[in-house]
């Protein structure tokens, strides 16, 4: 594994909070430098625990993690200067105004960029003379993003930051992130289960199920390899064909999600005796839902 081309490499990472409850169960994850990576998973699958190990807030029980070529636990101080982190429900200094916060954070980071700061202040429309504790949730999160971006980080980690924001605030937050991607060398990792907003931003996606990644690939590649086959509800039982990921009934339709080459899958369904069906492309969210569907829902 080349340390130069990868911003984050995790191999065989495990973490348990109690002896019986292992949360991360052998995580292998690779984030290329300069890419935007979406770490997707339902609540409770180990996303936040994984992120905390990447940021060095938690030490893994087993396995190895390298972040920007550094060990997140041993090199924590060094790493903290190159990495910025915005998390859901993150606490800032509530008694400060945004100008106090800027002055305060700036003192710790020599790379602080006043131009970016002025630009983001304007773009986010954050009120100046107000204490942070009186900000709306959306403003508060944007203030946290501003603090993270002005440090000119090599790695930006966003842990479900849009949770609880309304649509307008989410859009503004996303604009800030789009703005931040412009730097070629900056890596962004996004953990979330709100997929439509981040799909068009992400170069790579990793889908996490029960403590490990079940899928990790470029988003365009993922989208090219999944298709949804719609059959009439009375089409009969779906046989065990290779490539079938999930089957569900909507009442009107039977929807089969398949992974593989479209023409081969179509041929297989013809061969199995199905005559009437349509094959459709899927959004990343549809793919996520199919891949993470529990077995009992999926047949």
């Amino acid at each position: 594994m080349s340390e130069n081309s990868n911003a984050i490499v995790a191999r065989g990472v495990r973490k348990a909070y109690t002896r019986k409850k292992e949360v991360v169960k052998g995580l292998d994850l690779t984030v290329k430098r300069g890419s935007v990576y979406a770490l997707l998973g339902c609540n409770g699958v180990g996303k936040t625990t994984s992120i905390r190990m990447i940021t060095g807030q938690l030490a893994p029980d087993a396995g190895e993690i390298s972040v920007l070529g550094l060990d997140p636990v041993k090199d924590a101080v060094k790493l903290r200067r190159k990495m910025a982190y915005v998390a859901e429900g993150q606490k800032l200094y509530d008694w400060m105004t945004i100008d106090d916060l800027i002055k305060f954070v700036k003192a710790f980071y020599p790379e602080w960029d006043d131009k970016v700061c002025a630009h983001l202040l304007k773009m986010f429309g954050l009120p100046r003379g107000v204490k942070l504790k009186d900000y709306s949730r959306g403003m508060y999160t944007k203030a946290a993003l501003l603090g993270a971006l002005c440090r000119d980080p090599d790695l930006l980690i966003l842990d479900d930051p849009m949770l609880g924001l309304d649509t307008a605030a989410r859009r503004e937050f996303m604009s800030g992130v789009v703005d931040a991607i412009h730097e070629f060398d900056r890596t962004v990792i996004f953990s979330t289960h709100i997929i439509p907003e981040i799909e068009a931003l992400s170069d790579y996606a990793g889908i996490m199920v029960d403590g490990r990644l079940t899928l990790e690939a470029p988003v365009d590649e993922i989208k090219a390899s999944f298709r949804e086959i719609r059959l009439p509800a009375d089409a009969g039982d779906i046989p065990e064909l290779p490539g079938i990921v999930s089957v569900r009934n909507t009442g009107e339709d039977k929807i089969v999600t398949v992974k593989g080459v479209e023409s081969e899958m179509t041929a297989a369904f013809h061969q199995a005796g199905f005559r009437f069906f349509t094959v459709n492309a899927m959004s990343l969210e549809d793919i996520f839902l199919a891949v993470t569907a529990k077995p009992e829902e999926s047949r």
Partner: peptide, 14 residues
């Protein structure tokens, strides 16, 4: 590039 990316909220690299 940047303007279109912001408008469509997509990755500028795209």
């Amino acid at each position: 590039v940047r303007e279109l990316a912001m408008e469509l909220r997509i990755n500028p690299n795209t």
